[in-house]
Design a protein around this nucleic acid. Structure first.
Length: 365
DNA sequence: GAAGCGTGGGT
DNA sequence: TACCCAAGCTT
C-alpha cells in the first residue's frame, strides 16, 4: 500500500508550485472559504470567480449576508443554478448571527448542522479554513483515487466512497490538511482531467496503478448515464403601458423564489400560442391577445432539454391590471424594462430579456 | 438509494 | 448535434 510520505510529498510540492492564485487563498478567511465551497458545488472554477468577487463586495461578511434581502441574494446568484444553495446560505447566515453570536463555527459537527452544508462542504471548510484533518472528497478527488488505486466500481458507490475517504484521511500529512486537501482537488481539476489527462505532468505518475496498466481513460468507471427529456415550453412577455408583468415562483421546486414570465409546457397537439393563452388563464386569469412570436430559445435544466417558444402579448382594452387569480406564484409586479435587471430570472428567461430588450426596448407597444 | 435541483463549456 | 462534465445537498 502507498505510504503517506511517498504520496503527499510530490503532491504538496506540485501544489506549492502550480496552485492557482484564488481570492480565498490569500488569507483563508472562513466566511470566504465557505462561500467559495458552496459556489463551486457542481460547477467549475472559471464560472465561479466573477460571482465570488461580486458576492464578497456585496456581502462581505456573515452579518451583511444575514441582513440582506433574499431577492438581492438571488439576484447575485442568477445564472449559477441550484438556487437552493443561495437560499440556504442566507438561512445559515441568519442562524449564525442569531444563535451563534455572529461567529462561524470551527467544529465539523456544527458546520454539518447548517442548512446547505453536507459532508463535502463541512470537511472542506474545516480542512481549508481551519487546517483540520478531514477527508475532502469531491468529484476531482474521486477521479484521482479511482485512477491511482485502479478502483473498478463507480466512485459514488458505497465501497468506493468509503475506500477513498479512508485513504484520503490516511494520506494527509500531520499539519498539512489545508494544502493537501486542496492539492488533491487541484490535481483533478488541472492534471488528472476526465478526457484528456496530462499524465506526463502528474506528480503521482509513478504511483498510479491505472497509468501502469494503461487504462487511465477507463477510470473512473462511469455511473449510470442520465437520460434527457426534450420538452417544448411556451412563455410570453405581457406588456401594458410600457410595463412588463412578472411573477415570483413558489418557495419550493425548480427556480424557487426566482421571477419569471408566465407560461408552461406545450401539451399534446397544442400550438405554442394555444398553450400560452391557456397557461396565462390558469396562472393569472388574464385573457391575453395580440400574440407576436419573438424567438425560440434553447436551454436545459436538470434532466430536461427545453425549446422555449417566446412571445410578446397584451391585454384587451380596459382590462384591470391585477390578475384575478395567482396559482403559480407568490406575488406579481409590473416593472419597466430597465427594472428587470434587479430581479433574478431563470437562464432561459434572462436570455429572452437580453434578446428582447437589447438596445432600449423593442416590444413596448 | 434514487430522484430533484441549473447551467454553460468542452469534445 | 448530442452528448459528457463539474469543489453536492436535500428529501
Amino acid at each position: 500500500m502507498i505510504d503517506q510520505k511517498s504520496f503527499s510529498a510530490p503532491l504538496l510540492s506540485w501544489f506549492a508550485d502550480q496552485a492557482r492564485d484564488l481570492p480565498w487563498r490569500r488569507n483563508y478567511d472562513p466566511y470566504q472559504v465557505w462561500i467559495s465551497e458552496v459556489m463551486l458545488q457542481q460547477t467549475q472554477m472559471d464560472r465561479v470567480l466573477g460571482y465570488f468577487q461580486r458576492w464578497i463586495a456585496r456581502f462581505p461578511d456573515v452579518q451583511a449576508l444575514a441582513s440582506a434581502r433574499e431577492d438581492a441574494i438571488l439576484a447575485s446568484w442568477e445564472g449559477l443554478g441550484y438556487y437552493t444553495r443561495a437560499r440556504n446560505l442566507h438561512r445559515a447566515a441568519r442562524y449564525v448571527v442569531e444563535r451563534l453570536g455572529g461567529e462561524l463555527p470551527q467544529e465539523h459537527a456544527s458546520w454539518l448542522a447548517l442548512p446547505g452544508v453536507g459532508p463535502y462542504t463541512a470537511a472542506a471548510v474545516c480542512a481549508i479554513a481551519f487546517n483540520q484533518p478531514h477527508a475532502v472528497v469531491d468529484a476531482n478527488v474521486g477521479r484521482v483515487f479511482a485512477r491511482v488505486f485502479d478502483l473498478d466500481t463507480p466512485v459514488k458507490e458505497r465501497t468506493a466512497r468509503d475506500f477513498i475517504a479512508e485513504h484520503a484521511l490516511r494520506l494527509t500529512p500531520p499539519g498539512q490538511a489545508r494544502h493537501f486537501s486542496q492539492a488533491l482537488m487541484e490535481l483533478g481539476a488541472l492534471v488528472c482531467l476526465p478526457r484528456r489527462p496530462r499524465c506526463s505532468f502528474c506528480p503521482l505518475h509513478d504511483l498510479c496503478e491505472a497509468r501502469r496498466l494503461d487504462i487511465v481513460l477507463e477510470r473512473p468507471v462511469p455511473a449510470k448515464a442520465v437520460t434527457y427529456i426534450p420538452i417544448d415550453v411556451a412563455t410570453g412577455v405581457l406588456m401594458a403601458g410600457g410595463l412588463i408583468y412578472i411573477q415570483k415562483r413558489p418557495t419550493t421546486g425548480v427556480w424557487a423564489g426566482l421571477w419569471e414570465f408566465p407560461g408552461g409546457t406545450i401539451e399534446g397537439a397544442e400550438t405554442p400560442e394555444q398553450t400560452l393563452i391557456r397557461e396565462y388563464m390558469e396562472e393569472t386569469g388574464f385573457r391575453i391577445d395580440n400574440l407576436r412570436k419573438l424567438a425560440v430559445i434553447r436551454h436545459g435544466y436538470t434532466k430536461y432539454r427545453v425549446a422555449l417558444h417566446c412571445f410578446c402579448c397584451h391585454l384587451p382594452d380596459n382590462t384591470p391590471q391585477t390578475p384575478p387569480i395567482l396559482t403559480a406564484a407568490q406575488e406579481f409586479r409590473w416593472v419597466s424594462p430597465k427594472e428587470l435587471d434587479h430581479f433574478a430570472f431563470p437562464a432561459g428567461h434572462r436570455k429572452l430579456i437580453d434578446q428582447t430588450f437589447a438596445g432600449g426596448g423593442f416590444c413596448t407597444e
